[in-house]
Design a protein around this nucleic acid. Structure first.
Lengths: 146, 146
DNA sequence: AATACACGTAACCCGTCTTGTTACAGAAAG
DNA sequence: CTTTCTGTAACAAGACGGGTTACGTGTATT
């Protein structure tokens, strides 16, 4: 396990759910993602809390979209999974006493902050529907050549 | 231990070495960084291989700068420690078969790539000497008010 | 020569975090 | 009342940075 793949996975599943004519069970979704049902429930819990998806218990239950993909941005999904840390590098301690270390961390945090702002800005400006469109275009291309 | 702090630590120590009139031992450096001598040697090994610092064994030995801080950028140091992964998030698999997943990962990688480019650009444009100057300014300010 | 000092490196453990897995309780449909 | 679901808790696995011990090697001092 290297990098947190929850964002990627949730985007992936949201698009599949949009294409799925009926409720999808955690098991069905797990097979799509190549993982397991418990992981799906665990990760989707955040999306449910934010009202992006809805789950029904019992026989015939499962998951379904509660909002249009046009109303869900990558940022929304990122927030819904708990806004995990974006960067794998950073300063060593929170409040260093050493002034040299403070100067180092200030510069480092500046650069990281800039990158984070840009990244989250991109996340905000892209909806899951945009990605679904990318897929549609790619799929059309794919079948056209086949 | 959350985020990789090697870059921060190496920048920190390079500035201290520039201020240090003589060779610094791994133990001395370890105390500055709040860590231990073996970790220092391990991490500094990368800087030595790139020729940014030089180490001398035996009695009276230790570490010294092999280049001016003006000639070492944050990017150089980042590379020297092995260019560890910058991001803590990312796609789930390398080459997904699912076209939906491919579309998701493409968008995600686009955004990550943009952020990485920006970050490394900042790293390239800042020298360790720049940070040392920040410290000097801050230190002057500090003693002035005291 | 002997000793003390300091780097070089391998080996191992620990803490943290994501992910996978098992187990079990609750709810809804047949 | 059994089957099919979700909802959680609990725990193991794997990865990775960092801390620690141990031991080898080179160098100056005595």
């Amino acid at each position: 396990m290297r990098r947190d793949s929850r964002l990627s996975r949730m985007l992936h599943v949201l698009i599949h759910m949009d294409r799925h004519y009926k409720r999808a069970t955690s098991d069905t979704i797990a097979q799509m993602l190549g993982t397991n049902a418990v992981v799906v429930r665990r990760t989707m819990a955040g999306l449910r809390k934010q009202g992006y998806v809805h789950s029904e218990q019992g026989h015939g239950g499962g998951w379904e979209l509660a909002r249009a993909l046009t109303d869900i941005s990558l940022f929304d999904v990122y927030q819904a999974i708990g806004a995990p840390p974006l960067f794998a590098i950073g300063p060593s301690v929170e409040q260093p006493e050493c002034l040299v270390e403070q100067a180092v961390d200030a510069r480092l945090n500046d650069a990281l902050q800039e990158a984070e702002t840009l990244l989250l800005e991109r996340f905000r400006s892209v909806t899951v529907a945009d990605i679904a469109q990318d897929f549609d275009a790619c799929f059309a291309e794919h079948t056209h050549h086949a």
